[in-house]
């Protein structure tokens, strides 16, 4: 589903070392993958590169068998509309109500001819999605009237509403209490079982992430320093990974 080869991306600030210096990785169809790393290591940037929102200076990005560097603008758009993306800062549209926000991807897919739904069905899908995140009663509100956690859940509903084959979550549980976190992961799990979609999750809550996904990736200093089963992270050969997983003060980090 996703294939990265030799990705190199320079930092915005030219005096800093490159954010990525040779990252290669493959994620198969239907796989669930967690991505972690220290702050500002480029987790969000890597997700954006995978989606074609940011272009790397070197290397190739393939999604669903298409090289994003070679795709025409129209092709890129149609690939992107098949990815559900939860942004780290939610990126809800300020000028639309919660309901319109969640309906937006469906309406656009309808316009692109990727979906054949009528208005009734769209509304049904939207309220189903909103019910899933427990916000069915907030459909008519504006995003600015919601709390941070509620906004995150609306963004989640918007990401999954079109049932895309590839789902990307950037910090789905940041700033949420433990019970809501558990609920969100439960929701991600049912979504994943239902649609068999490929899922890539970034989270700082590494324990919950390891419980949820079988495979873990870790970026550090521009490289992938871990790529393997979640269970083996504690016994990794790399001291960086061990320290990160155990949350110790002493170590190379």
């Amino acid at each position: 589903m996703i294939a990265l080869d030799g990705i190199r991306k320079l930092h915005l600030d030219p005096v800093q070392p490159p954010v990525f210096d040779g990252i290669s990785l493959r994620i198969a169809e239907g796989e669930t993958c967690g991505l972690c790393g220290p702050g500002a290591s480029g987790k969000s940037l890597l997700l954006k590169i995978i989606c074609g929102l940011v272009r790397p200076e070197h290397g190739t990005v393939e999604v669903a068998g298409r090289d994003l560097g070679l795709a025409s603008p129209d092709e890129l758009r149609s690939i992107q509309s098949r990815i559900g993306y939860l942004f780290q800062n939610n990126a809800l549209f300020d000028s639309m109500t919660v309901q319109e926000n969640v309906a937006f991807p469906l309406r656009q897919r309808l316009r692109l001819g990727q979906e054949a739904l009528d208005e009734q069905q769209i509304l049904a899908r939207v309220s189903e999605s909103l019910r899933g995140v427990g916000l069915a009663t907030h459909a008519a509100k504006m995003p600015s009237q919601l709390s941070g956690g509620q906004r995150k859940r609306v963004a989640l509903a918007r990401a999954v509403v079109a049932r895309p084959p590839l789902l990307i979550y950037d910090e789905p549980t940041a700033g949420l209490d433990p019970v809501t976190t558990a609920k969100i992961y439960d929701l991600l799990g049912t979504e994943q079982k239902l649609t068999k979609s490929t899922t890539l999750i970034v989270s700082s809550d590494i324990d919950a992430l390891r419980r949820f996904s079988d495979r873990m990736l870790m970026v550090y200093r521009g490289r992938l320093c871990y790529d393997g089963p979640s269970a083996d992270m504690d016994e990794s050969a790399s001291p960086v990974v061990r320290q990160f997983v155990r949350g110790e003060l002493e170590g190379p980090l």
Binding site: P73, D94, Q108
Partner: peptide, 17 residues
């Protein structure tokens, strides 16, 4: 302000130019 709050990226991800 739509760019800095990533709303423009969100538009792209919905297949909108």
């Amino acid at each position: 302000s739509m760019v800095v709050t990533e709303q423009v990226d969100a538009l792209r991800m919905c297949g909108v130019e």
